[in-house]
């Protein structure tokens, strides 16, 4: 008899595909934010698996205008490669008001150029569901998330009174102006993501691999995202590095560490 073993990655993949299909069945008007980062690209890959090769809803890039040029190049290449219906949104109004990392703190800029930009584009397209690539192990407030997580019309996350979520019974309705965040990667860890990228050979930006003794472990806006010391230039080497590291994944992301509970405050107001 063939030795077929269901692996941990198979479990995660199956669960994510299930969540994608539940979401697509429940909501009429879905979009999927795509940052071009590693988790985002796994999300696109899983969406293609869930829907037999094509992503059946628009993919949204919130462009803060502080993107790394390499990421924008990747965006152009990958959106063609995966045949994505790409929408790019910039909060031009905030940029015109002078909001930027040169003059403002990272929490304010992140809120204006990411969360408010998302509010604007959501109001325009009237999406009732957003598919996000957040994972529980990234941040302790993300660790408290639901797979289907409602946001009110003001974009607020009512973390003190989240809906129950028993045995895959999800919140599958949103009132007018409200939306539900659907989070198929919640159970994945950073190492799971890398093993899956390796197993499936998923295209990702080269900035994750070490060059001149440094690599990016997490990618965001260029002025507030810092590379780590690393010689890991292959996925195998990255996995070995992650198994030994004692540093958190988002240590190089300034907005998370600006003040106590910075992520809670950002996320309560609608940040992913």
């Amino acid at each position: 008899m063939a030795n077929i073993q269901r692996t941990h990655l198979d479990d995660l993949e199956n669960q994510s595909v299930f969540i994608f299909r539940e979401a697509y069945h429940a909501f009429k008007n879905i979009a999927m934010p795509w940052s071009m980062g590693k988790d985002s690209n796994v999300l696109v890959w899983l969406a293609r698996k869930a829907f037999v090769g094509r992503v059946p809803f628009p993919v949204l890039h919130i462009d803060t205008t502080y993107e790394f040029p390499e990421m924008l190049e990747f965006r152009e290449w990958a959106s063609k490669h995966h045949n994505l219906n790409l929408i790019v949104k910039i909060n031009t109004e905030a940029r015109a008001r002078g909001i930027g990392y040169e003059t403002h703190d990272p929490v304010t800029v992140t809120h204006e150029l990411k969360t408010v930009a998302l509010q604007q584009v959501l109001a325009e397209y009237k999406w009732d569901a957003l598919i996000t690539g957040i994972r529980r192990d990234e941040d302790p407030t993300r660790a408290k998330e639901r797979y289907f997580s409602p946001r009110n019309a003001q974009f607020e996350w009512d973390y003190k009174d989240q809906p129950p979520e028993f045995w895959s019974q999800f919140v599958t309705t949103a009132a007018k102006g409200e939306h539900v965040r659907i989070q198929p990667l919640l159970d994945w860890t950073e190492v799971d993501i890398w093993r899956y990228i390796q197993r499936e050979n998923i295209p990702i930006p080269q900035m994750y691999f070490a060059r001149n003794g440094k690599r990016f472990r997490s990618l965001g806006c260029s002025p507030i995202t810092h590379p780590i010391e690393s010689t890991a230039s292959t996925i195998d080497e990255i996995i070995i590095e992650l198994e030994a590291t004692k540093t958190t994944e988002r240590a190089g992301r300034a907005q998370d560490h600006y003040e106590r509970n910075a992520m809670q405050k950002l996320r309560a107001k609608g940040f992913l």
Partner: peptide, 8 residues
Amino acid sequence: TIDTTEIP
């Protein structure tokens, strides 16, 4: 503890 948390 208000809400459930999952830690790998």
